[in-house]
Computed example of a mutant assay.
Amino acid sequence: MIPDRQIKHHDRERSSWVRLRTLVILRWIAILGQITALVVSVRILGLDLEVGLAAMAIGASIIANLFSTFLYPETKRLSELEAMLMLLFDLLQLCLLLYLTGGLNNPFALLVLAPVTIAATFLRLRDTAILGIITILILTALAAWHIPLRSTAGDVLQMPDLFRFGFWVALVIGVVFLGAYARLITSEIHEMSDALLATQMALAREQKLTDLGGVVAAAAHELGTPLATIKLVSGELLDELGDDPDLADDVRLIGEQANRCTAILRSMGRAGKDDLHMRRVPLEGLLQEAAEPHLMRGKRLEFVISDETEMPARQPIIERRPEIVHGLRNLVQNAVDFSSD
């Protein structure tokens, strides 16, 4: 069973995967697009816009980017709150520009989908939902309150009420659908990545055990000769020092300890040659070992061994074979991949 604090710790680690530099680059791209759209609207399309206020909104985004660039290193990882605040700032800045340039009559209102979609890829579900609700509320407000788009001749440029309502509905559906879609795809990618990491860790662990067994077997073989020499010499000294009981006891002790070391190395050598995997363990222990690489994947695992009686279940003793562990691990991986809790 996975403790809740481990699941929360895993979520916090995942939320800090995004670097500050990534969002800064995305913001610079958005700023360049906003400046281009403003210049084209005024110089080419001849629209009468609140250029000063729009330039101040874009300037606020530029200042925020400059502060982020110079105050923090490029490798800084954003916390959950920091990433949420950055995306919220981008959303509010974009909505302010939309308020100054016709609200939902502005075709660039479609860009409000970007912050929610980005948030769904790395923020937790709660924060993504909060950002989505704020986006829907702002879109609703922009549909009712905004500065109208006007041409230089004074004509008001706006869509019919029915089209504007349909555009609002389309944007709301887009916020919900794209956010959910990005969330599901990203979750599947993360689960596959976690499964791959768990498999790599398991294989690395098995390789280390195999290498350790080989080292033990080699050590037992190499140390056998010097220990045999010590035993032989101690026997000869014991024959020569038979008249001195104190020295004879010391030499006898040396021989006994050499015999003991030989026995220990012989048993360790057999364990190394047996690859350290041929051990007999209870069924529950084997299941726990097979499920160990998947304990940190955000799913709750329970191990229940029971029979029809009220007495504790008697578990079968199973040989710990690599093929059995690998097969059980695949079953656990499939269960974790397709479980809902």
Rank of each mutant, 00 (worst) to 15 (best):
R21L: 14
L301Y: 07
T262C: 04
F67P: 00
F338Q: 05
L26Y: 01
F303S: 02
A141F: 07
N259V: 00
R205D: 08
V336P: 15
Q200Y: 02
Q315E: 13
E240R: 14
L253W: 09
D243Y: 08
P148V: 04
V24P: 00
R300S: 05
I118D: 04
G235L: 09
T128W: 14
N105K: 07
A30E: 08
L81K: 08
D244I: 04
V176Y: 03
A143S: 10
G174W: 01
L287C: 14
V325F: 01
E206I: 03
A153Y: 07
V39W: 02
A170W: 12
G166V: 01
G33R: 15
C261S: 15
P148M: 03
E188V: 04
Y181L: 05
R27P: 00
R21P: 00
V216C: 03
I44F: 07
A141E: 03
A248H: 10
K8E: 02
M268R: 13
T262R: 09
I29V: 13
R329G: 13
L97Y: 11
G103H: 10
A119N: 02
T69H: 08
V216G: 02
P148S: 08
G224A: 15
K76G: 00
L276S: 11
T128V: 15
L301R: 08
L247A: 11
G103V: 12
R43G: 03
L203W: 01
G255P: 05
I136C: 12
G52P: 00
T75A: 10
P226D: 08
M268N: 04
A202V: 02
V325Q: 06
S234L: 06
G213H: 04
V233A: 13
S41Y: 07
L113K: 09
E206S: 14
R150T: 04
A248K: 09
P148D: 05
I138F: 14
E50V: 13
M201Y: 03
M311P: 01
K76R: 09
L81E: 09
L104M: 06
M86D: 05
G102S: 07
Q158E: 14
T75V: 03
T101Y: 05
M1W: 00
M84G: 12
L131Q: 10
D90G: 15
L96H: 10
S267G: 10
I29T: 10
